[in-house]
Every structure is written in C-alpha cells, then in structure tokens.
C-alpha cells in the first residue's frame, strides 16, 4: 500500500504553507519527514487527515484519491497527533474502545483488538488505568496502540516524541521501525530531532513549505557536506544570513 502526495500547495491567506510538495512513500518502510518548525509538516498532516481541505494537488493511497474517496482513505490511515488526544478521564481500554467504535467496529470485535494492541505495546497491565495516571511515554504508546486498532496500512506520527526523555524516544522510534518490518506498515514520522533517523531511512526534508530533499538520510550529508545529521540539518535549513553568521 503506497501513499503519494502530488503537487500539494496550501496557503493560510497570503502565506504559503506548502508549495508544490510531491513525494511517494515506499510500502513497509519507516520514512522520516524532517523540517524545522514552520516548515509545513503539521499542515501536511492536517491535509492528509482532512482537518483542512485540499486547495491544490492531491493525496492518493494506491488509486484512491482523498478528494473522491475520503472515507476509504481514512480507513487505511492511523494517526498519532503531535498533541495528545486521549481522553484523560477515561481508562486506556475505554479510549481504545471509543476509537474502534468511531471506525464502526463493534465492542465484541474490538475486544481482541484492544488486547492485541495493548499486549504488543506492553501496556496490557495498565488497561484499566485512567490515562491521567500514565506518564508521557506510556500515553504515547497508548496513542500508537489506538492508531493501529483499525489495522491501517499507513501510520502517520506528527512529532510523537516531543517532551519525552531520550530513552523513551529511542524505544518508541524502534517500536515503530519494528512495526514497519514485521507488519509491513508504512510509517511517516515527522521530527526535527536528527538522532531519530538512521542512514538507510528514506527522508523527506521540508523547508519553507517546499521539498528540499526527497531521498535517503545519507543524501543530507552529501548535499550539505557535513559529517553529522544534525549539522547537515542545520546547514540545509538555515537561511543564508544564518549560514553567513555561522
């Protein structure tokens, strides 16, 4: 199952947030969507998730266009938003059942799915705890479990590690990589933390609403002439003025 973004442009009034963005995701791979704050990552997510309507361009999953068949596209996509969207006063299990219901899954059918996802996320023992009682890392795990409840082919994660400690960040990142390898899920992981990417990862670098690099992590090093990803990111996304000052 592949997702392709075709000539996507979006403007907030006079300000262009995305300018002719095109890329394709490889099925079953972990893709990093890189870009500094304001690069257009969240706008891109809001278009894929239909929170904003497309202005120009299209988003397709296989042959399905989000313009023509939004419901079919939504069924194939799982999302972890940047801001936690769990109901804090409900238990972990209740949050997952709610999500299943929103996808038209009966409680009876949702039961084994809830158990499967919580076990997979090593959260089965916290199933009856209120989300409010969980730490940040556990909440993120629940959000990933929730996003996988309806067995999507594509998992979108919008800066899912914000506010987490380095160890938890790494664990979460590795977990999503395992999902890609074992379950053949296509993941799009938005981040500006370079330690989360690996040399063989496909990367899309967004800058000022445009695709700067659509290739592999090593292309960042090649194009910037740097030896570390974080330096390469800084060089590629800083303005000419900042570069001169540096």
């Amino acid at each position: 199952m592949s997702i392709s973004v075709e000539s996507l442009s979006f403007a907030y009034g006079p300000r262009n947030a995305l300018k002719g963005v095109s890329f394709q995701l490889t099925p079953g791979r972990f893709h990093a969507l890189l870009g500094p704050n304001g690069a257009g990552k969240s706008t891109l997510f809001s278009l894929i998730t239909r929170l904003n309507a497309l202005q120009d361009g299209d988003i397709c999953i296989d042959e399905l266009s989000i313009r023509q068949q939004p419901a079919s596209v939504m069924q194939r996509v799982g999302v972890v938003f940047q801001q936690s969207s769990l109901d804090l006063d409900l238990t972990v299990k209740q949050n997952l059942y709610y999500h299943a219901a929103l996808h038209g899954i009966s409680r009876q059918h949702a039961k084994p799915l809830v158990e499967r996802e919580l076990t997979r996320m090593e959260m089965a023992d916290r199933a009856n705890d209120k989300v409010r009682a969980l730490n940040g890392g556990h909440r993120r795990r629940v959000e990933i479990a929730r996003a996988l409840m309806h067995a999507p082919d594509i998992l979108l994660l919008d800066e899912p590690t914000v506010g987490l400690d380095p160890q938890t960040r790494l664990a979460l990142c590795n977990y999503v990589r395992d999902l890609c390898e074992q379950d053949h899920i296509t993941a799009l992981w938005a981040t500006h933390l370079m330690e989360e990417i690996q040399p063989h990862d496909p990367v899309i670098l967004l800058h000022k609403g445009e695709v700067l690099i659509n290739g592999h992590a090593d292309d960042l090093l090649e194009q910037s002439g740097c030896s570390h990803y974080s330096d390469a990111f800084h060089v590629l996304t800083s303005t000419d003025k900042q570069r001169g000052a540096a």
């Binding site: 109901d87 006063d89 209740q94 709610y98 299943a100 219901a101 929103l102 038209g104």
Partner: peptide, 21 residues
C-alpha cells in the same frame, strides 16, 4: 451496523464522562 456501533461508542463515551463528573 458501522453507524450503530459508532453511535453506541459516542454515547458510551459521553455517559462515562458524565459519571466521571
């Protein structure tokens, strides 16, 4: 049936929130 399960889910959530508060 999907619509019915969805309605049930929304109703249960509202009810749970209500009894929490």
């Amino acid at each position: 049936s999907a619509a019915w399960h969805c309605f049930q889910g929304v109703l249960i959530r509202e009810f749970l929130r209500f009894i929490q508060q």
